[in-house]
Design a protein around this nucleic acid. Structure first.
Lengths: 182, 182
DNA sequence: CTCCGTTCTGAAAGTGACTGTCAGTTGCAG
DNA sequence: CTGCAACTGACAGTCACTTTCAGAACGGAG
């Protein structure tokens, strides 16, 4: 529930992540603590529920070019950024603050990214291209490159578009796919 | 304490990670639960205390060639592997099993790797080479490439040397440093 | 409208990870 | 012996998280 997440962020911003209990979040959102756990699983989940989680594997596959995944990711970020700006939703980026400041949240984010990377890895495999192991490495690099970009964006004050940071940070990875066009 | 870790692994192997409490670990190692927390911080910490944590920044820096970090990492793994084999210590690799099977442990490992990646990133920066953001991406790729290699090694039965998996998985990353010799 | 199946939700109790504090112990320098 | 420092154990408290169960809401079949 979007509402729960927003209420939770209000409380976190006000009192700090550690000083807010799930009960308080539940009370603020007018649901039971049970429901919070049902929807988000963990306290960190309130902040980690990810934009990519919503995407189905099919959506991912059709938007992902195995021969130029860097551009695919940049494009996806641009699309998401534009959609969020259009709706005037700022929640996706409000969470980034806690990625940096709360170790527990960071850990959850990392675990989530790594999971996504494992999902994406098979899409990077090509018959005469990357092996499964190499695809995993490449997928991890993409996922954590995105995280690094988010943090740089945040530390810069959050004024410039995120896609630029992604583009810049990931550009060296293009070398991986530059040579072997299979 | 090495002893605590080994006793903990004994219990985990016997009853499963989730079915062992810190109290039981403490009792088996003949220390107090307080001490377990003092040394390892969390339950997952019993398994995540890392080979790289022991290295000081200076050690890292002197072993790390900014122009060929992939080879540096492979070499480090080989060294560590040889040292462990020589002493007949198997604990470092016993833990890998839980990296795969226990989500909470995996999350802790990911967070730890990401932290190490941020420590290593500055060493990858060169005057006219990678930017800070790019260095972070590269460091993440190295760290998680190591994790991927560990898992492939584990899934293969743990018979072949790990360094081989690292070498194979990370080889595409060499392209990043191949072009621009600065 | 009634009955019945499924799905969603709240209540409540229990477990155990983790924190903080404090007191006792050991080792060491003076 | 005395004071100081570092380490350790005991204890109590908090709260994240799980599990279970009972009721509410919805929808369809009769």
């Amino acid at each position: 529930m979007q509402t729960i997440q927003e209420r939770a962020l209000d409380l976190f911003d006000e009192r700090g992540f550690a000083n807010v209990t799930i009960e308080q979040v539940a009370a603020a959102a007018e649901v039971s603590p049970s429901s919070v756990y049902r929807y988000f699983g963990t306290k960190e989940g309130l902040l980690v529920a990810d934009e990519f989680d919503a995407m189905s594997p099919e959506q991912l596959r059709e938007r992902f070019d195995p021969l130029d995944p860097v551009s695919s990711l940049v494009a996806a970020v641009r699309r998401y950024e534009a959609a969020a700006a259009e709706q005037g939703v700022e929640t996706p980026w409000r969470r980034v603050r806690y990625f940096v400041s709360e170790p527990a949240v960071r850990a959850a984010v990392c675990a989530n990214l790594e999971r996504i990377a494992r999902e994406v890895a098979p899409m990077l495999q090509t018959p005469d291209g990357l092996t499964p192991g190499q695809a995993r490495v490449a997928a991890s690099a993409l996922a954590f490159g995105y995280l690094a970009a988010l943090e740089l964006w945040f530390e810069d004050g959050g004024e410039h578009p995120i896609a630029g940071y992604v583009e810049e940070g990931l550009s060296p990875l293009r070398a991986i796919w530059a040579g072997a066009d299979d």
